[in-house]
Simulated scan of single mutants.
Amino acid sequence: MEKTPDPPVTVLVTRRPKPGKEQAFEDYLTGITQAALQHQGHMGANIFRPSRPGGEYRIVFKFDRRSNLERWENSTEREEWRAIAEEVSEPRQVETISGLEAWFTLPTCAMNVHPPKYKMALLVWLGVFCLVTLLSGLLGPLISEFPRLLQTFILTALVVVCLTYAVMPLLTRLFSGWLYPNKDQN
């Protein structure tokens, strides 16, 4: 029997507060983020506020598995927050992505715009190369007496966490002109 894939997913939501409802929208963002954090598999959220008044907000939710996202989306609590969102903001745009594209999302780019795969692969390689070099140098002396498998386990776990939460968001911003050379980022 074939098992259905259940990959990690990232949900990108774009919303614009209704005029005069900006504070209510901010309250909604705080509430839904705190509520989502309580659900199984939720790995955090990033909120990108607009650079000008009246602009769009970009909200990025991450889940460890698609099934956990679906549980959250089908929950009564999520439905209650969605009703509040409809009162305080314009209709939303949603994109659910998995794979490398999740690391290459800029708050200023259109939701369905992703760089070419060769650029994503090159930037991931750069991030991995730098992290492996740095972490091997720093941790090597500390873990050299550990079995080789444990050394590799520790190093790769740290590389993945650093890539996901720090290095890839930084590299994506630093190389945005190269990743998205012909895209209007405003």
Rank of each mutant, 00 (worst) to 15 (best):
L155T: 08
L138A: 12
A166M: 08
Y165M: 04
S144G: 05
G140M: 01
V124R: 07
L126K: 13
V161S: 08
L138F: 15
C162Q: 11
S144R: 12
P147R: 05
V132P: 02
F153T: 10
L149G: 01
P147W: 00
A157C: 02
Q151S: 03
G127A: 08
T152A: 14
T133P: 03
T152Q: 14
A157P: 00
A166Q: 00
F153I: 04
S136L: 11
T156L: 08
F129R: 15
A157K: 11
V160C: 08
Q151D: 02
A157N: 02
W125Y: 05
Q151N: 01
G140P: 05
A166N: 02
Y165D: 02
F129M: 15
A157S: 01
L138M: 13
L131R: 04
L131M: 08
S136I: 13
I143D: 04
G127Y: 04
G140A: 01
A157R: 10
V124P: 10
S144H: 07
L131D: 00
G127I: 04
V160L: 09
T164D: 12
W125A: 10
E145I: 15
T133M: 14
V161R: 12
Q151H: 03
T156Q: 07
T156R: 07
L150P: 02
V160Q: 12
C130F: 10
S144A: 07
G140L: 00
I154M: 05
V160M: 07
C130W: 08
V161W: 12
G137S: 06
T133D: 11
L155R: 00
G140T: 05
L150I: 10
S136C: 12
L149I: 10
S144I: 05
A157F: 03
L134F: 14
L158P: 03
L158H: 04
L163W: 11
A157Y: 07
C130V: 13
P141N: 03
Y165H: 09
I154S: 00
S136E: 13
S144F: 00
C130G: 14
L139P: 06
E145H: 15
P147K: 07
L155W: 10
W125S: 09
Q151L: 05
P147C: 03
W125P: 00
L139I: 09
G127S: 04
F129C: 15
T133L: 15
Y165P: 00
C162F: 09
F129N: 15
L139G: 00
G140W: 01
L139M: 09
L139A: 06
V159S: 03
A166W: 09
L126Q: 13
G140C: 03
L134C: 13
T164H: 11
F153V: 06
F146R: 15
